[in-house]
Amino acid sequence: MGGCVIYWFTGASMQAVTTGAYQAVVFIKKNIKLDKKEASIEDSKEVVKICTQYAQKGMINIFIVIFFMTLALSFFNPYYFIGYLIAIAFFGLFQAIFMANAGGCWDNGKKIVEVDLKMKNTPLHEATVVGDTVGDPFKDTSSVSLNPVIKFTTLFGLLAVEIAVTMTDVNLKLGLAACFFLIALIFVYRSFYSMRISEEKLDDHKSKAKSKGKGK
């Protein structure tokens, strides 16, 4: 279970970054003239606002899942929670190392192509740009965020277990655990499907790109 939560978290955090970045790009293409010498402060504020809004939406979903999943397992069985805690620490450590290294490799690969090989505006450069687009959220979002997830789960989970152990009504504990688990699953669903870029927007974006290409 702990490993599942780690892999879900990395996917959900990257989904939030992807959606926010897409909305920012759409706004920039519609409202900002990139050939201007000076950037508009108002336009810049709007881009920051868009990115912040989607970051907060993703963060709320993620926090609620981590919060209620910890409560659910603590109330279900203290020993089960111990296994969950060990798994989340073990998988979280190696996932963080993997994502930090992989993201850094993608980022440095683009820099090598641009600076050392001097191959900008080539197919190789385009490939490294795609890699860097994935690498940045790998190393700057998901990997570094795993540390507070592990810390919060540990500290809050131990408090929740202490409360659960003092409860004598087994049926009440299991009922609360089931409710907490259900809430967590709802927000797991929301973390992906409420943050996805709608297919209509993607199709509209693709059709506009094709029409521009034909016009040229």
Rank of each mutant, 00 (worst) to 15 (best):
residue 48 V to M: 14
residue 88 I to K: 00
residue 26 V to E: 13
residue 42 E to W: 04
residue 8 W to C: 12
residue 180 F to L: 08
residue 31 N to F: 06
residue 75 F to K: 08
residue 152 F to P: 01
residue 29 K to F: 02
residue 23 Q to K: 13
residue 189 Y to W: 11
residue 123 P to Y: 02
residue 34 L to M: 08
residue 41 I to G: 00
residue 205 H to V: 03
residue 39 A to Y: 02
residue 211 S to F: 00
residue 28 I to V: 10
residue 182 L to E: 14
residue 95 Q to Y: 00
residue 86 I to Q: 09
residue 76 F to K: 03
residue 22 Y to E: 02
residue 87 A to I: 07
residue 77 N to W: 05
residue 166 T to I: 11
residue 10 T to S: 15
residue 215 G to M: 09
residue 121 N to K: 13
residue 60 I to E: 06
residue 87 A to F: 02
residue 208 K to Y: 06
residue 210 K to L: 15
residue 42 E to C: 04
residue 11 G to V: 02
residue 115 V to K: 03
residue 143 S to R: 08
residue 113 V to D: 09
residue 185 L to M: 00
residue 127 A to E: 13
residue 28 I to Q: 01
residue 213 G to C: 09
residue 107 D to Q: 07
residue 86 I to T: 10
residue 13 S to H: 01
residue 150 I to V: 10
residue 175 G to T: 13
residue 186 I to D: 03
residue 10 T to D: 09
residue 117 L to F: 03
residue 155 L to A: 15
residue 148 P to G: 13
residue 114 E to A: 10
residue 118 K to L: 09
residue 50 I to H: 01
residue 9 F to V: 11
residue 198 S to V: 01
residue 144 V to R: 13
residue 188 V to M: 13
residue 127 A to S: 11
residue 93 L to W: 10
residue 108 N to P: 04
residue 119 M to P: 05
residue 117 L to N: 06
residue 129 V to Y: 12
residue 137 P to R: 04
residue 70 T to Q: 05
residue 212 K to S: 14
residue 210 K to Y: 09
residue 136 D to H: 06
residue 148 P to Q: 13
residue 205 H to N: 12
residue 51 C to S: 15
residue 163 I to D: 13
residue 150 I to G: 01
residue 82 I to A: 12
residue 182 L to R: 07
residue 11 G to W: 08
residue 148 P to I: 11
residue 145 S to I: 03
residue 158 L to G: 08
residue 75 F to M: 14
residue 111 K to C: 10
residue 183 I to Y: 11
residue 13 S to N: 06
residue 83 G to M: 06
residue 7 Y to Q: 14
residue 60 I to Q: 07
residue 8 W to R: 07
residue 183 I to G: 07
residue 148 P to L: 14
residue 211 S to N: 14
residue 92 G to F: 06
residue 131 G to N: 12
residue 208 K to S: 06
residue 94 F to L: 08
residue 160 A to F: 02
residue 163 I to W: 07
residue 61 N to E: 01
residue 171 N to K: 05
residue 71 L to S: 04
residue 93 L to G: 08
residue 47 V to N: 11
residue 78 P to K: 09
residue 189 Y to E: 07
residue 189 Y to C: 10
residue 49 K to Y: 14
residue 81 F to M: 15
residue 55 A to T: 09
residue 3 G to K: 01
residue 111 K to Y: 06
residue 167 M to C: 10
residue 191 S to Q: 04
residue 123 P to V: 03
residue 181 F to W: 12
residue 73 L to G: 00
residue 150 I to L: 10
residue 168 T to A: 15
residue 45 K to W: 12
residue 2 G to F: 02
residue 127 A to N: 14
residue 105 C to S: 14
residue 118 K to M: 07
residue 71 L to H: 05
residue 145 S to Q: 12
residue 54 Y to C: 04
residue 67 F to A: 11
residue 4 C to L: 04
residue 34 L to K: 00
residue 61 N to R: 05
residue 39 A to M: 05
residue 52 T to N: 15
residue 7 Y to R: 11
residue 115 V to H: 07
residue 168 T to E: 15
residue 116 D to C: 05
residue 20 G to L: 05
residue 120 K to F: 04
residue 19 T to I: 12
residue 154 T to P: 02
residue 139 K to S: 11
residue 176 L to Y: 07
residue 100 A to I: 07
residue 18 T to C: 05
residue 166 T to C: 14
residue 10 T to L: 14
residue 159 L to C: 15
residue 50 I to R: 09
residue 77 N to V: 02
residue 144 V to H: 02
residue 136 D to L: 10
residue 170 V to T: 05
residue 59 M to V: 06
residue 191 S to T: 01
residue 8 W to Y: 14
residue 33 K to S: 12
